[in-house]
Design a protein around this nucleic acid. Structure first.
Length: 157
DNA sequence: GCCAACGTTGGC
DNA sequence: GCCAACGTTGGC
């Protein structure tokens, strides 16, 4: 299967790309996703070696700040059955996990943020999911041509 | 903090 | 299985 490309959103106040870099081995498990479409992507389609555009949302300058890499494929999100967790879901159970996460590793920081505003005004990116109106999916597939374009923008000035 | 967009829930 | 109510996301 060919390498695939993704975009994952995180609020930098909660967990930024810099935070990911500081983790042990610059790796974290992407817990807390509670949306079925996003879960299905992680469960069924994300593979080791896939690359991820790391997107900061809900902040002064929303946009893509760098790249991460998938290092572990879908497995149960244990926070769903931890009753103290903010991600606790009584309908999930260890014997029948409802929610899935992957592990991602810091790969590269852009020289600069490729802002949402900028992506929206870039013709080559006009049909990219993240620039579509009302697009809230926190894990979404990205076409190679879009991935390459965003990376090019982020690594040049 | 507002609010539009969208997903989920639950009554019927 | 419809759909109104509600909760969340996330740009602005």
């Amino acid at each position: 299967m060919a390498q695939k490309y993704w975009l994952m959103k995180s609020e930098p106040d909660v967990f930024s790309l810099e935070d990911l870099k500081k983790e042990f081995d610059s790796t974290t498990h992407w817990d807390g996703v509670r949306n079925y479409q996003a879960r299905n992507f992680m469960r069924d389609e994300m593979k080791i070696g896939d690359l991820v555009l790391y997107y900061h949302s809900n902040c002064d300058e929303p946009g893509v700040v760098g790249i991460a890499e998938v290092v572990r494929e879908g497995y149960p999100d244990h926070t769903a059955w931890e009753s103290g967790s903010k991600y606790f879901d009584p309908k999930s159970a260890p014997e029948n996990p409802r929610w899935i996460m992957v592990d991602i590793k810091w790969h590269k920081a852009f020289k600069r943020t490729v802002t949402l505003h900028e992506m929206k005004s870039t013709p080559e990116l006009s049909d990219m999911r993240v620039v579509q109106r009302g697009q809230r999916l926190s894990v979404q597939p990205v076409e190679k041509k879009h991935f390459d374009k965003v990376v090019e923008m982020g690594l040049n000035s």
